[in-house]
Design a protein around this nucleic acid. Structure first.
Lengths: 228, 228
DNA sequence: ACATCAAACATTGTTAACAATTAAAGTTGC
DNA sequence: GCAACTTTAATTGTTAACAATGTTTGATGT
């Protein structure tokens, strides 16, 4: 069960993008990654290739690979796709959730609410994403779960680019409403609430192009920077 | 605009899977692909890596990569995902299709009907897939179109594994009904018909595990086999 | 004949050196 | 001082040889 070097790299970069330590447009230099993670270039190269498949990075021939910078149009498409997929997920979850599932999701929301009182913004995004993905697990469709994993990552990038600093991200209240509908075995209400949740999240965006904030690779992995 | 060797390879293999010249479980040997396409191993390797991202092949460490063999469960998940996505696509298409779009789709259906009278079964699958993808283009959501491209490919594999030989694949009649709803600007009816179409396609499957038919790589590319 | 084991073969995985391309720095001329 | 050009450095792309793993083949003994 020991993950390969390539998988570790992919996970580390996905994590860094998820909680916005790596911002859109940041360059992922091959040698830099070799040094940071202590692997050889071929492995880095394959990891980056895999990441392009997740729409997390874009590869420019002879230039390098960069953290993806979704356009405003792509942002709209991502949210529409999420509504289509998460409505189905919410419906299935309401039909299939066991008592254990519901209890687990409630515990997750408690954690979310607790952390929200603090100001750990990164943690907030990560936990919010985790709720959506756990609900997907409960729904039990691996294909949809994989797509949602992809879409939530892209949502992280979109929030980083177009999100207004003021507004919080996913309201915990919305999540609570969805879970209540699931617990009440009300599939259509759960689906409607999921759609509404995503609409309000999208409404909180400012979809005007803005200068792309780029930061260095080393900033995203401060712990490793000293090790190597 | 000249496609790279890697892209050509990916396209060729995806095509071969789409019209079932490459069947589930077929081994994609690296050296064999080098010989067939006259490229070096590194390029083959990267192409195969990209293909795993499309869920078209699976990679087994130290064993090689093989054309994916979806399980019965995955088949169900794929169809549920398609219903979620294509219902949204049909709805959008009905809202946004121009007269040109509709004319183009009608021409496509004419072609489909014509070929159907012949017995070109491969052509039939390819054209049916193309209709779904063209409708997605009309709907105008690139994210959903990409996912659908992925799902239709997997559907090809699923039909090869679990499809009853008797039944045709996508009925042209179903497609016609969907297009009529689009032309009539009836989004909900279009969405319902799309869902029903996929339900009937899924109902035509025999989801019992069966021996995996494997054929050789060279069989899938008879034209190239002689060149090299 | 069948199972077991061992050696030969074939295939995948890794590494390092080399080539090609792009970005950066420095220089020259106006 | 600024722009255009040349040279230098850094980065990505490619190739081929080597190592490790898995598979097949054939021999051996029961």
């Amino acid at each position: 069960m020991t993950a390969s070097a390539e998988d570790r790299l992919v996970e580390a970069i996905l994590d860094a993008i998820t909680d916005q330590r790596l911002r859109p447009g940041a360059k992922l230099g091959e040698q830099a990654l070799c040094d940071l993670f202590g692997v050889n270039r071929a492995q880095v190269r394959r990891a980056l290739s895999a990441l392009t498949g997740y729409h997390a990075v874009t590869h420019v021939p002879n230039r390098g690979t960069f953290v993806a910078t979704p356009t405003a149009e792509e942002a709209r498409d991502v949210f529409e796709a999420r509504r289509a997929i998460e409505a189905t997920i919410a419906r299935s979850a309401a039909e299939r959730a066991s008592e254990d599932d519901i209890a687990r999701l409630r515990a997750h929301l408690d954690l979310e609410r607790e952390r929200r009182n603090g100001d750990a913004r990164r943690e907030e995004i990560r936990l919010s994403r985790a709720f959506h993905l756990e609900l997907a697990e409960v729904a039990g469709n691996r294909v949809l779960t994989d797509y949602l994993s992809d879409l939530t990552l892209r949502t992280s990038l979109i929030l980083g680019l177009y999100g207004r600093a003021k507004t919080g991200y996913c309201g915990t209240d919305d999540h609570e409403g969805i879970l209540d509908a699931v617990a009440a075995r009300a599939p259509e209400r759960a689906a409607d609430l999921a759609r509404a949740h995503l609409h309000s999240l999208e409404a909180g965006l400012d979809l005007n192009e803005r200068p792309v904030p780029v930061n260095a690779l080393a900033d995203a992995f401060p712990d490793r920077a000293q090790v190597f």
